[in-house]
């Protein structure tokens, strides 16, 4: 049973470089909107402040809120990167976080090598990758370029490859920071369909986005965050069936 459950989740971020403490403090406050606490260990930002919620199977959750409201931190906490400072975070199911699509990929390597590089970081073994490698290459439309080092690619080409890799293997939980759109008009239509298909195979989607229309189109539930709090948690009534 795939699920995400948090109780009284609180995350404090330590801020180092305290050479210019007060200036730093001011800058951080202006830029993030997170609450800044001053504890015994120095300055820290309270990015997530005592929130509780649970997400069950089949839910498509949209996270909204302005910059620094705590959306990305929450995504990272779900991914298990940030352990809770207080409270708990319980996640059941395999997770893929698409915060940085081209994670681990290197320009000196060929596209083909990069497929293995990217996949291994998603925890996918060689044999599994080999089974799907043709499909990845075909979808990315790179053709012969796949044998060339990635530094010869255009930005669009590298992104297409990364996108094709990341949407090949289904996971229970998908975490996304902004809806992915890649490539030119033709490819972007094709990519949109593939992404929807990929998400349909998953059980839970958590999407942080600044675009309300995107969230309305996809999500079943919208969580609005501000200063590390949840200020609104409601069903999306406008969802087109």
């Amino acid at each position: 049973m795939t699920s995400i459950k948090t109780e009284n989740l609180t995350i404090f971020y330590p801020i180092f470089d305290s050479s210019s403490r007060s200036l730093k403090k001011a800058v951080v406050r202006a830029a993030t909107g997170g609450k800044i606490a001053n504890d015994a260990h120095g300055i820290s930002v309270c990015a997530i402040d005592n929130i509780s919620f649970s997400i069950g199977e089949g839910e498509r959750v949209g996270l909204v809120g302005h910059n620094g409201a705590g959306k990305s931190t929450l995504l990272r906490a779900i991914a298990g990167v940030y352990a809770p400072t207080k409270g708990s975070m319980e996640v059941n199911g395999s997770i893929v976080s698409l915060l940085d699509l081209s994670l681990g990929m290197d320009n000196e390597f060929t596209g083909y090598e990069n497929i293995f590089m990217r996949c291994v970081l998603m925890g996918i073994g060689k044999d599994e990758v080999k089974k799907h490698v043709d499909d990845i290459i075909e979808f990315s439309e790179l053709g012969e370029y796949i044998r060339m080092p990635m530094r010869t690619y255009s930005t669009g080409m590298s992104l297409r490859l990364a996108f094709s890799i990341c949407t090949t293997f289904p996971f229970d939980i998908v975490l996304m920071d902004e809806w992915l759109s890649v490539g030119d008009a033709d490819f972007s239509k094709k990519a949109e369909n593939r992404l929807l298909e990929f998400i349909n195979k998953s059980s839970i989607l958590v999407l942080a986005s600044h675009k309300p229309e995107q969230i309305e189109k996809i999500c079943t539930r919208v969580i609005k965050m501000d200063h590390g709090h949840i200020i609104e948690d409601k069903k999306n009534d406008n969802l087109e069936k």
Binding site: A79, V81, L99, L103, L121
Partner: peptide, 8 residues
């Protein structure tokens, strides 16, 4: 760090 901050 890019890996540590994205994948657990």
């Amino acid at each position: 760090q890019s890996i540590i901050k994205q994948v657990s």
